[in-house]
Simulated assay, not measured.
Amino acid sequence: MPIQFRYTPEIRSRFPQLRSRTLFVDGIGANVDASIQIARLVTTADDRLAAASEGAFPEIQAWRGAFSTMGLKPTQYRCASEALLRRYRKEGSLPALHPLIDLCNATSLAFAIPVAVFDTSKITGTMTVRLAHGDETYETFAGQIEHPEPGEVIFADDTGRAHARRWTNRQSGWSAVRADTTQVLIVVEALHEFAENDVAALMTSLSKALAAIWRGSGVAEMEPL
């Protein structure tokens, strides 16, 4: 059964410009070749970066504004898409981690929009974007346990486990995609002026790539609650 994904009314009211969509994907495996689809997306990113640095992109500027609203220094805490673009611009490549993660990272590069991916077997109940109480549990990729600051925007499930901190800044190692992952929740979020059209275009591109790479997989698009 697909994982439900929702925003609290407070998040909706504070960020009325937010546009988001989710995908529930079943039938993922690590033994596939996603290089063709990834190369096309990276070429798009190359073209954009040749014209301007990521900091000038409206998608990134909108997230910087949101982070400032949340009391975070935008150049210290960057949204996931800016961090990826920044690393790619400096190093010329991104590390290969897992075909699905590599595809979603390339998609994020091309559209300059954060794309989060969660292993649904690690999520209990509904995934909610909300303000932290401060007692939630967040596990880093190194296995360390942290507790989000009260009022911080997090992705949390029904057990109080935080699957992302500072909204689109940092995902948890707990629900990261692994070699044995078969079902995932993909979340795409944007705040800029043309977010609705760009998120729709991203979802179309990603859905087609998923169907081409993981033939026979189930891909269901869902509207966040």
Rank of each mutant, 00 (worst) to 15 (best):
T69G: 00
A51Y: 02
H163F: 05
P150E: 09
T69Y: 11
P95A: 01
A80M: 13
I38N: 01
W167Q: 03
A96L: 08
A195T: 10
T107F: 02
T182V: 11
A132D: 01
G143F: 01
K90S: 13
L131N: 09
L49R: 04
P99V: 00
A116Q: 13
F111Y: 15
A190D: 13
F67K: 04
A162C: 11
N105H: 12
A34K: 00
D119I: 07
F15I: 09
D46E: 14
F155I: 00
V199H: 02
V188I: 14
G71Q: 06
F15V: 08
A51D: 12
S81P: 04
A30I: 04
Y7H: 14
E82K: 02
G71F: 05
A176S: 14
Q183M: 09
T8M: 08
R14W: 06
E189C: 11
D119P: 06
N31I: 05
A195C: 12
H192D: 12
A112S: 15
A66Y: 02
D46C: 05
I11D: 04
D158W: 07
A211M: 10
S108N: 10
M203V: 11
T22P: 00
E146V: 07
P114M: 11
I186M: 05
A52M: 13
I36Q: 13
L94Y: 03
A66G: 05
I36C: 06
M70A: 10
V188K: 01
C79E: 12
A45K: 03
A179D: 14
P9N: 12
L225W: 03
E136Q: 09
T181G: 08
T128H: 06
A211R: 13
T204P: 00
A209W: 03
I11V: 15
G216D: 10
S35A: 15
A52L: 09
I154D: 00
S175W: 04
E10Q: 12
K73W: 07
D198Q: 15
G27M: 08
S121R: 13
G65W: 03
A45N: 05
E59F: 02
